[in-house]
């Protein structure tokens, strides 16, 4: 039988103890507290967004790697998950950018130069 080499056989577990898990939980709580502090700190908007993004990405990564054990799994799972993660992030960025530059909005849907009644009637 020439099965592909197995990264990890059944019954092996991530080398993590209860103590470590609790420690990670404390770290996550502390980071959340820091995030709250940052949110109220009044730093410049750009910096604030940057710091918050880094902190929440850190929390995200810690949960995925440690609680979801992705760090200890076959690398294939990481690649499969990253398809969705990267694409989802890319779509958020792309759509936000596309609408960021949109200067063609007419507030309320009433054409700016249209005659006053021109926009309303279509609501039959």
């Amino acid at each position: 039988m020439t099965h592909m080499p197995q990264a990890e056989s059944h019954g092996e577990h991530p080398p993590t103890t209860i103590r470590e898990y609790v420690l990670i939980g404390i770290v996550l709580t502390v980071v959340t507290a820091v995030e709250l502090w940052v949110s109220y700190s009044g730093m410049s908007f750009g910096l604030l967004v940057g710091v918050l993004m880094v902190l929440s990405a850190f929390k995200f990564a810690v949960v995925v790697a440690m609680f979801m054990h992705l760090r200890f799994e076959n690398g294939l799972l990481w690649r499969l998950f990253s398809f969705g993660l990267i694409l989802g992030t890319a779509i958020i960025l792309a759509l936000t950018a596309l609408f960021w530059n949109d200067r063609t909005d007419i507030v309320g849907g009433v054409p700016a130069n249209a005659a006053p009644g021109a926009a309303a009637p279509a609501k039959h």
Partner: peptide, 27 residues
């Protein structure tokens, strides 16, 4: 300037220009 009062339309006079849509809420 292309506008719409209801749904999306598209202004097209092939000999004068390619089409651009009339999108409600946008100009």
């Amino acid at each position: 300037a292309l506008q719409s009062s209801d749904v999306i339309h598209s202004f097209w006079v092939p000999q004068l220009s390619g089409k651009i849509d009339n999108v409600p809420g946008h100009e």
